[in-house]
Write a protein that binds this DNA or RNA. Structure first.
Lengths: 146, 146
DNA sequence: CGGCATTACTTCACATGTTAGACAATTTCT
DNA sequence: AGAAATTGTCTAACATGTGAAGTAATGCCG
C-alpha cells in the first residue's frame, strides 16, 4: 500500500463508493468461510433462497429473491446442478418455467454452512450494535425507494 | 417479474443484501449516462482519480483511490491506454512503478462527463435529503471500521 | 558484491456483472 | 385457428471480481 495523498478525498464523500466499501468490508468476513465449502457468495444466496422455500422455485423467483440477474443465475444454477446440489424439473402448467429444488446433498450442505454464517453475522451485529444496524438497514431501504 | 412469496423474507433484513440493493439502485441512475460515453463505472472512477490529482499517479495509488483490485485495474488501464485517454511513463527513481496521467483526450472526456455526473448525484442528494445522506455515509464509514 | 526476501505489478483461471440478442412456450388478437 | 406480441429463460460478448502464481526491479544483509 502506498500512502494516500490528500487531493483524492472526493471519493470519500461519494455514496456509491461508501456503499461499495462497506459491502466489501462485510463480505471479507464471510468469504473465507464460504470458500472452505467451495461456495461463492452468490451460490450461497441461491442455496439460502431454495432452503427457505418449502416449494420448488422457478428461475424468476430465485432471481428476485437473490437479486441476481438472469445470465449470472443461469450459470450459477448450471454449476450447482452439476454438483448435485439442486434439481430442475420441467414446470407442470408452463413448460417455460422449471421447478428447482435442493437435493439431499444441497440441503445437507446448507445445514452445515448456515450456523457458521449466522455466527459471523452475529459477531458483526454485536460489534456494530443492533440499534445502529437496524437504523442503517432502514436508511438503505429508503434510499433504494427514493 | 413473479410475485414474491413471503417465505423468502430473510434476505430483506440481511445487511450485505441491503448494501447490494442500495448500491445497485444508485448505479442504475449513473450507468446509462456513462454508457453514452463508452465508460463503465470503474473506468470512470479511474478517470476521476487521475483528474483529481495534479501529479501523475502510480498503479498502487490509483488502486487505493478507486478501491479496485490489481488485476481489474491492470485491465482497465490497458483499455484506457489503448483509447488514448491516459499515458504511462516509467517511474524516475523506481522502475517498477509507472507514472500515469491523463492525455488531453482523457482530460477532455472527464470535463464532458463530470457535470453530468454531478447533476445526477445532485438529484439523488436532493431527493434523499442531505441530512439523511450525510447520516448514511457516516454509518457506512463506521461499519467499515468496526 | 552476491544471494534473498520484498515490493509493485501483471498474468492466469475461474466466477460474476451487464447489455443485447436468440428462442421456445404462452397468451392475445383478429 | 393463425399471426403477432409477450414472457421466461438462455447464450453471447465483453468487462470486472477474486485468489493464486509469475515476473522484474529494489532493498537488505552477510
Amino acid at each position: 500500500m502506498t500512502d494516500s495523498n490528500s487531493s483524492l478525498r472526493g471519493f470519500d464523500r461519494s455514496l456509491p463508493m461508501a456503499l461499495l466499501r462497506a459491502r466489501e468490508s462485510m463480505m471479507r468476513q464471510f468469504r473465507p468461510m464460504l470458500a472452505q465449502h467451495d461456495m461463492t457468495e452468490q451460490q450461497w444466496r441461491v442455496l439460502r433462497a431454495l432452503a427457505a422455500s418449502e416449494l420448488p422455485l422457478d428461475v424468476g423467483e430465485i432471481a428476485d429473491a437473490t437479486f441476481l440477474l438472469g445470465p449470472s443465475l443461469s450459470r450459477i444454477l448450471a454449476n450447482l446442478e452439476g454438483r448435485n446440489l439442486l434439481l430442475r424439473r420441467a414446470g407442470e402448467t408452463d413448460q417455460r418455467r422449471s421447478a428447482i429444488s435442493l437435493t439431499a446433498d444441497g440441503r445437507a450442505l446448507f445445514e452445515r454452512i448456515a450456523p457458521e454464517s449466522e455466527e459471523i453475522y452475529g459477531l458483526i451485529e454485536r460489534s456494530f450494535g443492533e440499534d445502529r444496524l437496524s437504523e442503517l438497514i432502514s436508511l438503505l431501504a429508503e434510499l433504494e425507494k427514493s
